[in-house]
Design a protein around this nucleic acid. Sequence first.
DNA 1: ACAAGGATCCTCT
DNA 2: GAGGATCCTTGTT
Length: 205
Amino acid sequence: MGRVGVSVVEGPGFPAGFFEQDALVVARALLGAELSSGGVVVRITETEAYREDDSACHAFTGRTKRNAALFGPPAHWYVYLCYGIHRLINVVTGPEGHAAAVLIRSAEPVRGLATIRRRRRGLNGPTLLNGPGKLGQGLGAKLEHTGDSVVDGALHVRPGEAPSAVLIGPRIGIDYAQPEDRDAPWRFASAGTKWVGHRRRLRAE
DNA sequence: ACAAGGATCCTCT
DNA sequence: GAGGATCCTTGTT
């Protein structure tokens, strides 16, 4: 499952070149990893891959100031403001100059539940963090995290326990994309957890 | 200056 | 499952 058996380490816990791999590989391998911000820790349960020459990728229409981080070096954050409200957390992948990323969509709380609930209007249960906007809110993600290192920034990710099985499906909310991209099964979720969204559109590998 | 986008969320049936 | 709310940032004029 996207495991990389390399001995040299590029950041705490991740093998050298881990984030330089294809977004599809990184998206799947990040399931089970732990995201931390302040005292809050969550376990990633759902991701999506956005690739070069992918009409759903923000970089598809060319480089701008907004999406510049996508073209930068891997292992850095690209935090995107969606609908003027939601802060969506992405990890830049692939070699520098190759615009690809992994969107982190859902997670399960591990630590700091009280803080997460306060940010999430006191809500609780499986819908607490099962969407990219909800996740950004629960973690207190900021646009300023864009360009920061994903392994040693204020917001950072560490390897965790990989799920026993992975579910796949088409990506969410990209109806504007070309049909072959819209239907590509580039969404990944941990099996056997309630902490994911749009479960009906997922299937076993 | 301004228009418009926009990888969502929530509240209904 | 569908529809509307929502509002900041960017890109363009």
